[in-house]
Simulated scan of single mutants.
Amino acid sequence: MLNALEVFTTVSVGLMVGVEFSVAFVMNPIFNGLPDDSAVRARAHGGRMLGAVMPFWYIGSLVLSAVWAFAGWDHPGTGLVVIAVALLLVSVIMSILLLVPINNKGKTWTPDNLPDDWKQQANRWDRFHYVRVAIIIGAFTLLVTAVA
């Protein structure tokens, strides 16, 4: 049972890392290359779509990792899982405090209602997102190492 939990958790976190990495280093650079009205629409749509899914994915990954740490407490590698849980917790807190407020504004933007500083807000979200991606990559790496 613990092996199945380890695999499911690692795959779940790995997929989340892949999506967030893609947002940071593939999708947003593509959106930034579009004309402003198209870039705004693309970011807003992405914010609505991923904003509906990612809270469950982040919290689910955190819970799965915590269950793994608890269930495997006496197994080798548990210390790595505990550190991964701490990193995932940081990513959730960071998301709630820093990224979600910007995303909640951005997902309502259209070319007709843009604030004057929309590009600065989008760039600020991007910078926070890069840090969050690094944190969840660290958590994923620790989980993979704990399995190995």
Rank of each mutant, 00 (worst) to 15 (best):
G18T: 07
G51I: 03
A146S: 06
F31A: 12
L114K: 03
T9D: 01
I135W: 01
V131T: 12
S12A: 14
V85D: 02
A24P: 08
R132A: 00
V17R: 03
F8V: 14
G79D: 02
D117Q: 06
A139M: 08
I102D: 06
G106S: 13
D116K: 04
P29A: 04
I102L: 13
I83R: 05
P111N: 08
V26P: 09
N3T: 15
I59L: 14
E20F: 13
G47S: 10
M94H: 12
K105R: 15
P55K: 09
R48E: 13
L97I: 13
A71M: 14
I96M: 12
D112Y: 10
V63T: 04
D74A: 14
M54Y: 03
L62R: 00
A122L: 10
N113Y: 06
L64Q: 04
A71W: 08
V17K: 04
V26N: 11
V23L: 13
R43A: 09
I102E: 06
L64Y: 02
M54N: 10
S61V: 04
V13E: 00
V81L: 03
F56K: 11
A84C: 01
A86P: 04
E20M: 15
G79Q: 03
I83W: 02
I83E: 06
G60V: 02
A66I: 09
L87W: 03
S22P: 11
L114N: 01
V92I: 09
